[in-house]
């Protein structure tokens, strides 16, 4: 019951957000700023995480191949598919759900409790749209780019760790990468990335916007934003996998 009510409020919030901005020039500027902020604050951590996830997946798959009769280069193929299909989009989204989600929720939540949202409303500005629209668009532009970048780095990380640990040569790994490549997998991964980025930014903006109270509640909203974003990501990961892979 509570869930349905919240979901209804979320839909009404989105309806308020997706209205024509007051001034397109300002809106464009906001989108550029938001995209830049998300990308600039996250590319480092995403690089670190995806490279290591790629590296670890090579080692773990190599470990499972040990003593088997399967050809080595298949390691490259499995690393590629698991990183493109699952690790790069989903882990990137979960990390950004924490990082971007909490920052969006606390920024908007603080504006709410310090009456900045009221100040916007009194000026005759649609505050939901003014505070959230550009953030959502910025996220939907930038987060999929970060996912793509995570995919590439995870494969690089996989190749390097295979080579350093002596599990598989770089040539072997690359051969694996090139066998049985299915372009559709990338389409699937990017569909996930777009879905997740919308989930993260819209849920977090909503959580921030409905904050009532003071600093304590801003903290709560920010935690909720992360929790609900992550639940949304996992849930849609499952749904999209069901829908698109079988």
């Amino acid at each position: 019951m509570k869930f349905l009510q919240n979901f209804g409020e979320y839909i009404l919030f989105l309806k308020a957000v997706f209205t024509k901005p007051e001034k397109l020039k300002i809106f464009r500027q906001q989108i550029i700023t938001e995209s830049y902020n998300i990308g600039n604050s996250s590319y480092g951590i995403i690089a670190l995480i995806s490279t290591f996830i790629g590296a670890v997946s090579t080692i773990q798959i190599g470990y499972q191949f040990e003593g088997s009769l399967l050809p080595d280069y298949l390691i490259g193929r499995i690393v590629r598919d698991s990183n493109i299909l699952e690790f790069a989009p989903t882990i990137t989204a979960l990390v950004l759900g924490g990082k971007v989600g909490s920052s969006i929720a606390s920024e908007i939540g603080t504006m709410k409790v310090t009456e900045q949202i009221d100040a916007l409303e009194i000026m005759g500005i649609n505050a939901a749209s003014h505070t959230s629209f550009a953030k959502i668009i910025g996220g939907v532009i930038t987060i999929p780019m970060l996912v793509l970048y995570a995919m590439i780095l995870s494969l690089v990380g996989g190749a390097v760790s295979g080579w350093l640990s002596g599990i598989i040569s770089v040539e072997g790994f690359v051969k694996g990468l090139r066998t049985g490549f299915v372009g559709y997998n990338v389409v699937f991964a990017m569909t996930k990335a777009y879905t997740f980025s919308f989930i993260i930014t819209s849920i977090s903006a909503f959580q921030g916007f409905r904050t009532v109270g003071g600093a304590l509640e801003v903290g709560e909203s920010s935690t909720n934003a992360v929790v609900y974003s992550c639940i949304g990501i996992i849930f849609f990961d499952f749904i999209l996998s069901q829908l698109m892979l079988f």
């Binding site: 920024e107 504006m111 009456e115 900045q116 009221d118």
Partner: peptide
């Protein structure tokens, strides 16, 4: 506003 509600960004 009582607490001014300036846009802090």
């Amino acid at each position: 506003f009582q607490n001014t509600a300036l846009f802090d960004s």
